[in-house]
Amino acid sequence: MSMLVVDSIEVFYGEFQALFGVSLEVAEGETVAIIGANGAGKTTLLRTIAGVLRPRSGQVQYRGMRIDGRPAYAVTRLGIAMVPEGRKIFPSLSVRENLLIGRQSGRKGPWTLERVFDLFPVLRERADFPGIDLSGGQQQMLAIGRALMSNPDLILMDEISLGLAPVVVRELYETVQAITRTGTTVVIVEQDVTRSLQVADRVYCLLEGEVSLSGRPTDLSREQISLAYFGV
């Protein structure tokens, strides 16, 4: 049985419709990438799963339980963590405090402050600095570490490579792979197609609020992806 099932959801911002009957399934332990151009609805999809947005119709199920309509904090407490777009580090909290906020999920598990520091040693060095004083790449590590601190079973990552140097992005994706090896399920939203295809078991492409393509990266040709991505 799939861990996460998104069943033909329609999502609106006021009168503006952002998602048109989008469906998606994620199995336990899988890494799934959602790709698509700017404005295709990727972040909207992720925020709907996380409970920030409510679908006007359709369902979101997690381990057989309906979670659409539940508030975001309740979804997080069920074990779905979010690495939000733009990192969203809490400016008045130190690096350590930002990580400790992850404990608000109330979930027990393998991830502790020490283990996150082992994964990202630079965060240990700068533990008492304000979170927003870190560089972009370090902030992204902090955002990932903060999500891990909630001991999730499923992590949603939104555009973690945005605005970062290629060498930093490579490093980040290595940690993503390290995280997936621990058995944590990961859903990645990316504009960087090449990068996400390298780590993903399966990929969904969104085009103007609809799923235009899905499959295993190895089964898809460059032309297929390009057509599904740009629509031309």
Partner: peptide
């Protein structure tokens, strides 16, 4: 305290705080 940090996180950014499991 954890609750105190939750207060500050909510003050900074309630939407992101909710994503961290905080009931704002």
């Amino acid at each position: 305290t954890d609750l105190g940090r939750a207060f500050r996180a909510t003050s900074d950014d309630p939407t992101t705080a909710e994503l961290m499991g905080i009931d704002s």
